[in-house]
Write a protein that binds this DNA or RNA. Structure first.
Lengths: 117, 117
DNA sequence: ACATTGTATTGATGATCGTCGATACATCGA
DNA sequence: TCGATGTATCGACGATCATCAATACAATGT
């Protein structure tokens, strides 16, 4: 179940642009919560570091030093948040970064939208 | 207790720039976790919406519809994460956005640092 | 000094989370 | 079809979290 039914790039106005609607805040918080765990931050950076910004679980389990079910669990969080996609190729699951979601979150946090300047 | 002893703007390389060190991931995750709650996202946007990007608890309690201790608790999370500062002026606590932290997180998520382009 | 007002802290409770082992599902090769 | 391999799900457990009522702390005015 994806997080956003509409295009993620159009989710929300910047956090710094004014009072945010409760629903927008809920969606944003869900994505930030997915980033709110050290293991998931590392997993995301490890995927991004691969050529083509994609990786299979087999590439990720050993470096993070956690069990395979735990890595699968974290990857599911990232997929549900819309930060990565999952594609089955043969026996392997390949996870790829969703640049649009990262760009949206990056824009939301941009302090250049602050009223005072 | 602040999150970072060093300058927050120099915390970490972009998530998309390569494999991240465990310590950097830990620090980033702590900040993202602070953003991982809808109430805190709204509080942050409400502070940003105020002139001068600052607000007191009295301005925040009623709009979010939660008790005063709960709002104080959330604000402490945001302060500890380095996203806002607290300044006591008379009886009131004024919270202000820390643009540098937002800028750092925004840069960390910028997908333009992806190896593939 | 004392009452008032704004905010922080404490203690408690129900909910969610991160982790694992065990197991189920899926895909491939013989 | 059957075993092997990669991944996802299930069930459980301890830890953390969001929330509140009660209370403590801090600053102001009388």
């Amino acid at each position: 179940m994806p997080l956003l039914t509409t295009d993620q790039a159009d989710c929300c106005a910047p956090v710094t642009a004014g009072v945010m609607e409760a629903e927008d805040a809920k969606q944003l918080a869900r994505m930030f919560k997915a980033l709110g765990d050290p293991t998931r931050v590392r997993l995301l950076s490890m995927i991004a570091a691969q050529s083509g910004a994609e990786a299979c679980v087999c590439d990720l389990t050993e470096p993070v030093g956690l069990s395979q079910p735990t890595v699968s669990h974290h990857m599911k969080q990232l997929v549900d948040a819309g930060l990565v996609t999952r594609e089955q190729r043969g026996k392997w699951s390949y996870y790829a970064i969703v640049p649009e979601t990262l760009a949206m979150l990056s824009a939301v946090l941009d302090p250049r939208s602050l009223p005072a300047g």
